[in-house]
Design a protein around this nucleic acid. Structure first.
Lengths: 349, 349
DNA sequence: TTGAAAGCGCTAACAC
DNA sequence: GTGTTAGCGCTTTCAA
């Protein structure tokens, strides 16, 4: 029943050659004679030999394993990222070890260490906060860390290659779109300020407001990562007498929270209040109204970060950190419309 | 810069003990004296030693790596599954190697072989079709295969532990719900018949129809896995003069396809046509109308399959295959309503 | 309670 | 073009 799996030694013996030759026909590291090659290949199929990747990784000092860390797998944006990366990995003969940090810095730290212990060849991280992965570079293990690329968050973190979106520009365009529709009271809804991408989005929002001399009307709703937390924050804003006429949600989860909150109040989108989201995915088109959103280039995120990582692993890339910033696209759809003129607003203007 | 990482030998030397003792304090496999333990722990922290999991896995014949194979990571149902499994894995000290089969049998096969080569301790698969993983059990590698649990699809496959939903019952309840609302022309939309779960859903649908003496009116729309393919199939059905008054979508992707198709025709849900879906996730509540759906117990899928896998790995479970079937929940919401009485239908009845 | 030593299965020098 | 051999870093007998 549980017969020992054949090793390369078994192959060599059956083929009547040395293990080196057997190894060479398997890996093609050295030329092998026609005769030997044939004997080895037939021995391999006769025995049903399969190489032990653990042993080969240990010896060759290359596991062809890439660690990937995301805050939450169920977030459609991260799921898209994982999908893209996994595809590239498969093409390049790598496998992905996927771990979730659950938006917790300590967990993230611990799990990354565990991945490094597994001798991964590279690391792809969507860090919990901009600062969370910094200690890894500074610690004793600095020189022993595998090539690492930070995605989405942590843009520009010193010591790391980073791939992110042009968040400020995207948010600027989105806010401008709302202003052009006549909105003057635009609330932004998002989580943690401790992330470069989120603060960049807020910055873009502020800039657009400032340019329209609306700077004083900025309304920031900041909450935790969860849907409920975001929902609570926007609820509070909506219950105010002078509630906003538009909500700019800075993440896809925030957009969902905003929609739920607005719906719960029986308000119409965009009749009573406009909602503008972030990220884009299949299901959004089933929403009524179809959500106006700032789409991030998920595919490009995946391909750029993968390319960067491969360059680092092969030692091609030069020393200084590389930062790649990808453009967002404002997708104007149905959830944003002209601002409803409110009595108070009319009187006030 | 690239100093060699300290090994357990370095630790032993610095602590003035043997490697065996150092190993034992790291792993606790054997009792170690107070004095030795202290010397080793301080040597470890002095050197910043971290064990090489590759080497330990090779020697101990246990990688603490679980392979997970899904058809498509971006499908919210599978994403939820991955999330749940990853959580359990983390708790138990395992890591997940995630691969996507892309609904392709050959790819699935190839990637599973690669996972086995990595000496994974267990395998969790949502197979492309019911038959796709069977050859693995039959092949020469049969005895060399790691414990494997099939999820969602492949229920009851010989030689495998399987975890699935009570699809027939769920679909029966859903269809009955539609019949009670007065629907007599109910189309089902789904992909591949070659999956036990899908055919069970169809069976449940048929049974409900039969019991209402509506068996002759069964309408099957079968398509490929893609959104577009499903969309095409349901479009065809909707363009018929006697189009259905209700659509029962057998997967979440099918539900999305149905919604898009109905919308494109300018029809109202549920006024003109009812839509009933499968699976349930956060974003559905942002849909207008909120989708009536058959929810599968994703969390339980994850916990049951994990428990089963752990039992097999530890050799606790007895020999015969185990099948676990989890109940679905019909969530009646807004997308299903009374059947609109059509002229033709009135005349016909 | 501890140590010495034999490998796990493989690759890469180094020889020929 | 091929073989011999020394490890990769670790765990685990076996003996003390």
């Amino acid at each position: 029943m549980s017969r020992r799996a054949p090793t390369i030694r078994d192959v060599a013996v059956l083929a009547g050659v040395s293990v080196a030759t057997a190894s060479n026909v398997v890996n093609g590291n050295r030329p092998v004679g026609e005769e030997s090659r044939w004997r080895v290949t037939s021995a391999i199929s006769a025995l049903g030999y399969r190489p032990n990747r653990l042993a080969s990784a240990l010896r060759a000092r290359s596991s062809r394993l890439i660690g990937m860390v995301v805050p939450d797998i169920t977030n459609v944006f991260f799921a898209g990222l994982i999908h893209g990366i996994e595809e590239h990995a498969a093409e390049s003969g790598y496998d992905l070890v996927l771990v979730s940090s659950g938006e917790d810095e300590a967990t993230e730290r611990r799990r990354i260490e565990a991945l490094i212990d597994r001798q991964i060849d590279g690391l792809l991280v969507v860090p919990t906060t901009d600062a969370s992965i910094l200690p890894l570079r500074e610690g004793r293990r600095a020189s022993l860390m595998p090539p690492t690329v930070l995605l989405d968050r942590g843009f520009g973190a010193p010591g790391f290659d980073t791939v992110g979106a042009e968040c400020a520009a995207g948010a600027y365009a989105a806010t401008q779109h709302l202003i052009e529709l006549g909105h003057r009271d635009i609330a932004v809804l998002g989580h943690s300020i401790h992330q470069a991408n989120i603060s960049a989005r807020i910055e873009g929002y502020r800039r657009a407001l400032d340019e329209a001399s609306l700077g004083a009307r900025a309304r920031l709703c900041v909450a935790g990562h969860g849907l409920d937390s975001l929902r609570g924050a926007i609820d509070q804003e909506l219950y105010r007498a002078d509630r906003p006429t538009a909500i700019f949600a800075l993440t896809n989860v925030a957009a969902l929270a905003a929609i739920k909150a607005v719906r719960a109040l029986g308000l119409d989108i965009p009749g009573d209040i406009s909602v503008l989201g972030f990220d884009d995915f299949d299901w959004m088109c089933a929403l009524r109204p179809y959500l106006t959103t700032v789409a991030q280039p998920v595919e490009e995120f995946a391909s750029c970060s993968w390319r960067l990582l491969m360059q680092r692993i092969s030692g091609v890339a030069e020393l200084p950190e590389i930062r790649i910033e990808l453009p967002c696209t404002l997708k104007v759809r149905e959830s944003t419309g002209p601002a409803r003129v409110r009595i108070r607003a009319v009187a006030g203007t």
